[in-house]
Amino acid sequence: MLGDGILKGLAETAKNFFLSYVSRERLTTVEYPEHRIPTAENARVFPFLVYDGPDWLAGMRCVACQICEKECPPKCIYIEKSSDKKPDYVGKQQFYPARFDIDISVCMSCQICVEVCPFEAIKMDTQFELATDDRFGGLLEDRRKLARSNEYYHSIHPAEAAEVDARLAEEKAKVEARAKAAAKAAASPAPAAATESAPPAKTEGGS
């Protein structure tokens, strides 16, 4: 009969109306500032720079190679290379960024900088509450603001960070083994072997 669909619909909304006062699980809204859903592990917002150890500047993995600056589609990264060098995680002397700025009002969170970085130095953050009342300076993050410890990286992306750490440790072990072999070769009275092993070690350090 005409109108029975309307009555059915009215019954449904009436049920919602009264039962939402009775059962809490009907209300799916999470009241955001007080309660929040934990962010997914694969969430990504804006990039940050990873550092190892306690000192952010000494432990910074970035070597100012400027690949990310060149690859960034909206060109939101600005890097100035340092004039001096500091040792990296394997002890090799490397440049470091004297300036590293990301304009997060321009950044489009594409993660290309992370993909291209050969040093595992730049990663995606999950921090999204970045609203500021200073629209000029407040959205331009310098290297101090961008620097986050490796422990922080582990806390937001545990699986990915563990994988990165394993790769870096492997790299470091390889370099150390090669250095040890080179030292042994230099010490041993076989000059032919020493000349052979030296060139690969040099190229390995650069990449």
């Binding site: 919602n16 109306f17 939402s20 009907r26 209300l27 799916t28």
Partner: peptide, 10 residues
């Protein structure tokens, strides 16, 4: 508030 409740919102 009533419309919210009908849609199981607050």
């Amino acid at each position: 508030k009533g419309l919210g409740r009908m849609q199981n919102r607050l």
